[in-house]
Amino acid sequence: MVTQSISNTVKVSSRGGAAVGPRDTPGYRVFTWLNGIVLILVCLLMVYPFVTLIAQSFSSPGAIKAGRVNFWPVGFNTETYAAVMQNGMFWTNYRNTVVYTVVATLIAMVLTTLMAYVIARQHLRSRNFLIGIVVFTMFFNGGLIPNYVLISALGMKNTIWAIVIPGAISVFNLLIMKSFFENQPRELEEAAQIDGLGWWGIFTRVALPLSKAVLATMILFYSVAFWNDWFSAFLYLDRQELFPVTLFLRNLIAGASTAASEGAAISNLSVQQISENIKAVAMILTIIPILCVYPFVQRYFVSGVMLGSVKG
């Protein structure tokens, strides 16, 4: 019986008598080649828009409008980059974006982590009620006008707090972190309690060190969201020196009326040139910092989401 079982799972090569595993079969090799080809095609499809975007940012507006720009710039042009980057307000707004993103991400991580750890405690009274309130806010909110009235009444208009406070807790991120904390071994907390640690000590010295993957993932989620956000600034900020760079670039894209307000930066460009070329330049300048940060947290990204989304 054992011999027959072995003979069914191991094939002997007729040439040299060597064992041939399942990975050496022709079918598996064909599958490997097809899988590799499909993955290469998928990568090319994902990279193509980004490469085209870079090429368009260095191309002439006429070539972009004619649809002649693909992988390489046509009619090499750096006037739009120069016009945007020579404007002092651009760098002021860029600095604002960095400050807003750092402060908002720090506040969001502190609040989200603390709340997720609290509602992950099974013995917490009214735990289900709190979770219900959190989930409720995923589907319903106060509305645009009530939010604007509230921010104005609190005196937060034209301040950094109007940008960082309303979005301080993302329910999606909160639920991921809650699931992650729920899956941490309870034996570690019990051992820490026996050693004399309180809940704050358990949180800072046990729970957080075990949560590096999900914390890195949440930092990436929050930082990208705050970096790309322009609508909050559009609502709550009136002074241009307080704008984030995304709102500055959005105003350039908006068209002729906004181009007039940015005349100092784009005096050597026509409105048509702005409409054809500025979109690519705006997106390239905006995503550069995120591209620089992502490689440092990429190895935590997949593992962090999976760990926080699987409930044992």
Rank of each mutant, 00 (worst) to 15 (best):
I288F: 10
Q273I: 04
P289F: 06
I290V: 13
A280R: 03
M283R: 03
I287E: 04
M283Q: 12
L269K: 07
L269E: 05
E276I: 01
M283E: 11
K279A: 15
T286R: 03
P289G: 10
Q272S: 06
I284Q: 00
P295M: 07
I288N: 13
L291P: 04
N277H: 07
I288Y: 13
I290N: 01
A280N: 07
A282Y: 02
L291M: 14
P295T: 05
N277L: 04
Q298T: 09
Q272R: 00
Y294R: 07
Y294D: 08
V271A: 12
T286I: 12
I284E: 00
T286K: 04
I288C: 07
Q273V: 13
L291N: 09
E276L: 07
P295Q: 08
A282C: 11
Y294K: 02
I290F: 03
Q298L: 05
S275F: 13
P295G: 06
A282T: 12
N277G: 07
N277W: 02
S270Q: 10
L285R: 13
S270F: 09
V293T: 12
N277E: 09
C292G: 14
I290Q: 05
V297H: 08
L269Q: 03
P289H: 11
Y294N: 07
I287A: 06
C292Y: 12
L285T: 07
R299D: 13
Q298V: 03
F296D: 09
Q298N: 12
L291Y: 14
S275D: 08
I274K: 00
L291K: 11
T286C: 08
I288E: 13
P295N: 07
C292D: 07
Q272P: 00
E276S: 08
Y294P: 09
P289Q: 10
Q273A: 15
I287R: 02
I274C: 01
Q272D: 10
K279T: 15
S270A: 12
P289S: 11
V271E: 06
A280H: 05
Q298W: 05
K279L: 14
N277A: 08
V271S: 15
T286E: 08
S275N: 14
I288S: 10
